[in-house]
Design a protein around this nucleic acid. Structure first.
Lengths: 221, 221, 221, 221
DNA sequence: GATGAATGAGCATTCATTCAT
DNA sequence: CATGAATGAATGCTCATTCAT
């Protein structure tokens, strides 16, 4: 990402300082996504950002904080995409499909950030920002949980263990997304998105039927 | 690793040297699974194994080779479990379900090795054993690919892009497995296994119907 | 530092710039006295003074020069106090007692500056101002040396090696002063001053007697 | 100090490892005494010791611990010398003189260690060994304190504030010792020792007389 | 085979100082 | 004069690896 098209969260005219800060963040993301946190050296980032050692430490307290910053940005992005998708949906099926679609769209739009998130789940460097993270999670997840709870109670989604639910909902898309960010997905993206959304929706739908007393797809145990 | 294929090629009773070697491997796995490859130091392994620096380097050429050793063992195990599951199955549905089940069983039996595999996908340290790895992959995957090809041609499984196919087949189980190895899965394992196998099977089944000309679930929004 | 000799050479009311300069000097002294020269960073001083990096370098050429400035101020103060004390005295005994008293008074009045002087004896950062220092020393010490020489020749003070003489004169007070600036002196200050002046005077007096041919306290073990 | 005459606390034949350790300690002392703790770099020590970075860190946890080690050694030495001197003395006067003499002898025998102790009083790097230090102090100082208490109660030494007492006892010798370790003492050592011991003894003696009701030296105040 | 001392390249970080605004 | 971003040499320390015993 070059400075000119860097996401400018501040104003149309970013100050030189803010531009520098963004250059460093971009360089760090590039390195972390490619080599991982531990294998990336500050020298790597310094060279790629075209900044001096001191400049990096002027803007960020440490390598850890730099990574945490990116991590938070990624989590914020994923959550925002997901919530918006949910809010825009009218039916349950639309909601499920939109969720999967938004997730894949985000991964495609921010492949490096996504790759970083994949690799760094539950990393040590998050500890200092654990507080902020859980605050974000609480706000976002409660809204989403509310949406799901209502539809489960309403009989539109199966009442299964949350972690299994999430695995079925996100698992296929996440599996594909990992290939995507590694540059190893050969398939047409829109077609994959439809198929993976199908998979999530039909799986949940089937489990609903199976669990329903007298459901026609009741499965021999 | 089952007792029968433990690296004791000589006798029922491992020699002291072989026991030491295994202690080092165990310690390394514990460390790699918990902290990752880069964040693990040889000193960590040394302490946990109760071995001296020299002893480790007597048994293993380098940190990379130690990790590669474990990686190969994990890949071998996963593939073996999968292939056996496939071979034991008579119907296509049984095959799909067995594959998902075998995968989850393996992860449950070898959580640390699995955690290591999750974290270390496509890591640098594999380069020196790339040859052996691709030989393993060729043998195992060809057999599996054959199984799938036959059933796709036979109209029992949908003809979709391989990476999407794999995402639908393994995605839910893999998503759940990641939670499992992190010790964050609260659900009853057998129940989860059934639900996740259901998800894989019904998803593939549905895509088959949708793609089949005149299929009752033909989908376009 | 008393108000009258504060570095305001221009007017009763210091300009904003002079006030800033003094804030920086105060902050630097606080830091140097507490942590020592090497362990103090310009950032420490900057924060404590509430000034910017650039502002500090506008007023002082370097960290060394800042320290040297303070050092000179301290030396000047100690010498001035000592000389005044000497000048005010009529008898030899009064002079000795006044010298010790003035020294302790100064340390008590300027504990931080004194702590700094204690810790920084013969430090590297003095080189650039070595010239000014030796000029100060020459003027002040010559006057004092004259005072002592006259009384030694006159048989009122013992003719012993100068460094031993100084050790006996200042040693007790200096030892106590080190505790004082560290905040570790529990004793009543005025009482301590009397006792330490006594020690200096009686020690010198005794040595005089012992050295005097036929002195009643002639000592050999 | 060359390896051959290094103090060997272990056995006549030191192992290579112990010799290396001592080389590092010697080099560190040389540097710390000359430049101070903060201004000394590990590279300085490394070069002077002829050891590699890793070797130093193999023997010592950190620069702090290295300094603390030396500090403890110095404190131990000073205390041991002082206690022995006290124990060997029969009269009170002998005790006081022996204490001053032993102090100066130690400083002369270990000028670098003494210079280090002078400069590093109450340094930060001591915190980790604060426990051991206070244990040493307790054992040694209690024995000494006992000696003094008995003689104060017995009317042989003045009952004055402990810190003033110590200042009078050690002050002159300490003042001289500082010059000594800086290589700035021009006086004959044995003569200085006698004079400084005189100073301590006569000062204390005089204070005793002055305080004694009806003492002939009672001081007008 | 085992031990642990030795090696030295490499790393994250600090910090005095400079300089554009 | 003030500000604070930028600079980069220097520092303490880590860690994989080697090697003598």
């Amino acid at each position: 990402m070059t400075p000119s098209d860097a996401p400018d969260h501040f104003s149309r005219r970013a100050t030189a300082s803010q531009r520098r800060r963004q250059q460093i963040l971009d360089a760090a993301l590039e390195c972390f996504a490619g080599r991982g946190f531990a294998a990336t050296t500050m020298a790597d980032i310094r060279k790629l950002a075209g900044a001096s050692t001191g400049s990096i430490y002027h803007h960020f307290k440490s390598k850890e904080q730099l990574a945490a910053q990116l991590y938070l940005e990624g989590v914020r992005g994923t959550q925002a995409q997901g919530l918006q998708a949910l809010m825009r949906s009218e039916t349950t099926e639309q909601g499920i499909r939109a969720l999967v679609g938004a997730y894949l769209d985000y991964v495609r739009a921010e492949p490096k950030l996504s790759a970083f998130l994949f690799a760094m789940r539950h990393a040590d460097f998050m500890e200092p920002v654990e507080g902020e993270l859980s605050r974000m999670n609480r706000t976002a997840l409660e809204t989403a949980a509310e949406w799901f709870r209502a539809r489960i109670t309403g009989g539109e989604l199966p009442e299964i263990a949350p972690d299994v639910f999430r695995a079925i909902l996100y698992g296929p898309a996440a599996h594909f997304a990992r290939r995507l960010v590694a540059g190893q997905a050969e398939t047409d993206f829109e077609q994959a998105k439809r198929d993976l959304a199908d998979a999530a929706w039909y799986s949940l739908h089937h489990l609903l039927e199976r669990r329903r007393p007298g459901g026609r797809l009741d499965h021999d145990s």
